[in-house]
């Protein structure tokens, strides 16, 4: 641009008729460069996502024990799923987990984000809030597993001092899923809060000024202005966190491993168990396909119902 403005006007005019050509060449040139930049990502996407997806879809129609070649068996796996009480239990447990996890996490994240937004913009605070997210999932799970131990864990020692009977967090079927959900809320809420915080910063300050002029209180401003204007960001956050939440695995794998009884056998863990400890890979693939469909539908519903495409600012 600078070169064009600096150039003498007559030169520009004398080359005027040729001007469209270089522009066209430049577009093509961009395409080549773009493809070079896109190629590694595309390759990775095809090799690590598209191909396994197609292969998974194919395997879901086969009986495949890993150690023998897959045998096509049509819709048998899907039919089995309908009669498999473990599968339905796993779905139920997963939904329970998602509801507790996402419900609690979203409320807490919005609360933390609001506190940050209204009280401090300190980088240190933001970093501190993100800290749990920086610790590996497995480590978080193991540390909590120790702290929540019934007999020697620090949490139950604390409860005892307070005069509360110790709680079998991981051992009681009613507590196990809330406990796992709570641990993951603890790990993820800071990160989610930062996403919401970023969303808060996109709300123009004149809206707040207008509200203040009109005499709206803190609560009213939050319900009438902040939340509605935050909606598109919240939808995005909800969709992404919910997909992640449906895929809970590592916390379960290092703590309860599906127990007690079947109370924490979430769908991902059940798929893993079927595939890698029971070598029922075809059936596991079929369940993965169903989970795929469920997640796609849930995400679509969320985006539609919450009008993610529209912003109230427009």
């Amino acid at each position: 641009m600078t070169a064009a403005t600096n150039a003498p006007p007559d030169t520009a005019r004398s080359h005027g008729e040729q001007a469209p050509k270089p522009a066209k060449r430049r577009r093509l040139g961009d395409l080549k460069v773009a493809m070079i930049f896109l190629a590694p990502a595309t390759l990775g996407f095809v090799v690590f996502y598209i191909w396994p997806t197609l292969r998974g879809a194919y395997l879901s129609f086969t009986e495949y024990s890993l150690l023998e070649a897959p045998k096509f068996n049509g819709l048998d796996n899907y039919e089995r799923m309908i009669h498999d009480s473990f599968f339905w239990n796993a779905l139920g447990v997963t939904v329970e987990y998602v509801v507790i996890n996402i419900g609690l996490q979203t409320v807490l994240a919005v609360a933390i984000a609001m506190l940050m937004y209204r009280l401090t913009k300190s980088i240190t605070v933001r970093a501190a809030i993100l800290l749990p997210y920086l610790v590996a999932n497995v480590v978080v799970a193991l540390v909590w597993y120790w702290m929540l131990d019934f007999q020697v864990g620090i949490v139950n020692q604390g409860l005892t001092w307070l005069g509360i009977d110790p709680i079998a967090f991981f051992g009681d079927s009613n507590w196990a899923i809330p406990t796992v959900a709570g641990i993951n809320v603890w790990r993820h809420m800071g990160y989610t809060a930062l996403l919401v915080f970023a969303g808060l910063q996109t709300i123009p300050s004149y809206v707040y000024e207008a509200a203040e002029v009109d005499g709206a209180g803190e609560m009213k401003t939050f319900w009438r202005i902040t939340l509605p204007l935050l909606r598109p960001v919240l939808v995005m956050v909800l969709v992404v966190t919910m997909i992640g939440s449906f895929q809970v695995f590592d916390t379960i794998a290092v703590t309860t491993q599906g127990g007690p009884i079947n109370s924490t056998r979430v769908i991902y863990y059940y798929i893993f168990e079927r595939a890698f400890t029971r070598f029922d890979f075809g059936y596991a693939s079929a369940m993965a396909m169903v989970l795929f469909a469920i997640l796609a539908i849930v995400s679509l519903l969320q985006l539609r119902l919450l009008r993610a495409k529209e912003s109230d600012l427009a």
């Binding site: 396994p52 969709v239 992404v240 992640g244 396909m289 849930v298 985006l303």
Partner: peptide
């Protein structure tokens, strides 16, 4: 926003398929 929703959906589906694989 159209891009976002498509991308998210795609992510949703693909992530769902990523059965833990062992190298």
């Amino acid at each position: 926003m159209t891009n976002l929703s498509r991308r998210t959906l795609l992510k949703a589906g693909l992530a769902a398929l990523a059965v833990p694989s062992l190298a």
